[in-house]
Write a protein that binds this DNA or RNA. Structure first.
Length: 302
DNA sequence: CCTCTATGGCGAA
DNA sequence: TCGCCCTAGAGGC
């Protein structure tokens, strides 16, 4: 389930549940035993996300770097039983436990200890992150400069984490549809205005993704989500929302439970079905190693 | 049981 | 471009 919104939400949840505490770190499955032994008993200082990377800072300049890959998950849950949290289920590579919460990491492609310098180097390789818009290094112009220099299709550029960080296959398909952009237009042919509009839309969509824990791209869902948040200004979300559902402030993210909205998209995994706007068949093709979905009739802009 | 798929990304060829 | 890594759930037999 991991695109950038997942990692930012997760960072917020971990930060909320563990920052300022000294969790026990274990590797029930055993594959991170050495790292867990090194981290356990150290105060956890903070958790933060850049693009699809998660960084959990522990005292003593030890940083846990996690990348969930395609199938990873990191569940942050409260528990009340004085005997401790429930026994691990499945292949739990890392478990954090303090006196009120536990977090289980499964299926990640990257789980490693890094230094602050290595963390900075990883971040330096990433393009600007829409979920960090407004902070240093996360200006859309930086991604535009890269885009303007490539003949690769814009749908491929959106998946390139060195051009823009945090966008995955679902957001790329849906955001291109929302702006009627032809996925195969070379990056250099995309109008500046179009790219900046996509960037602004991604800020709003991904912030809703963080707040609700699910990807929302259908306009009626987006409008309802904004109403629920009581927020009209898409640039004014409180970063404190990260990891928390509306009304859930002070609570924890609920694992992988279903979202508030039904899972529904305009083009993603709708190949062969009629376009919601024009009725022509949604098409699909592998691009940048993933299944791209688009409407060949609606998406002609650049 | 088995096979397939998934919101990623890497390195070999 | 392909194979491969990670894991879980869905669907087929």
């Amino acid at each position: 389930m991991p695109e950038g919104h997942t990692l930012h939400r997760l960072a917020g949840a971990l930060d909320h549940a563990f920052a300022g505490t000294t969790p026990t770190v274990t590797s029930p499955q055993g594959r991170f035993a050495d790292g867990a032994a090194l981290l356990t008993g150290r105060p956890l200082e903070s958790a933060e996300a850049y693009g699809k990377h998660l960084f959990v800072r522990f005292a003593g300049d030890a940083v846990l770097n996690v990348h969930l890959g395609l199938i990873g998950s990191f569940d942050v849950l409260p528990y009340a039983d004085p005997a401790g949290p429930p026994a691990p289920v499945g292949a739990v590579r890392v478990r954090l436990v303090n006196d009120s919460a536990y977090a289980d990491l499964r299926g990640a492609t990257t789980v490693q200890l890094v230094t602050p310098a290595e963390m900075a180097a990883t971040i330096a390789r990433l393009g600007p992150d829409p979920l960090r818009a407004g902070t240093a290094g996360n200006e859309p112009e930086r991604s535009l400069a890269r885009l303007a220099r490539t003949t690769r299709p814009v749908a491929e550029c959106l998946m390139d984490q060195t051009i823009i960080a945090g966008v995955g296959n679902l957001y790329r398909c849906e955001v291109l549809f929302r702006h009627r952009v032809d996925p195969f237009v070379p990056g250099a042919k995309v109008k500046k205005r179009t790219w900046l509009t996509i960037w602004d839309d991604l800020i709003e969509l991904m912030r809703l993704g963080v707040a609700f824990g699910q990807i929302l791209t259908l306009q009626d869902q987006v409008i309802e989500a904004k109403t629920i948040l009581g927020e009209r200004d898409p640039t004014a979300y409180d970063p404190g929302w990260a990891g928390l559902m509306p009304g859930e402030r002070g609570d924890f993210v609920r694992g992988r439970t279903g979202g508030h909205f039904p899972r529904d998209f305009a083009v993603y995994q709708r190949d062969g079905l009629p376009c919601l706007v024009c009725g022509s068949r949604i098409r699909t093709r592998v691009l940048a190693g993933r299944n791209l979905f688009w409407c060949g009739r609606c998406q002609r802009r650049h």
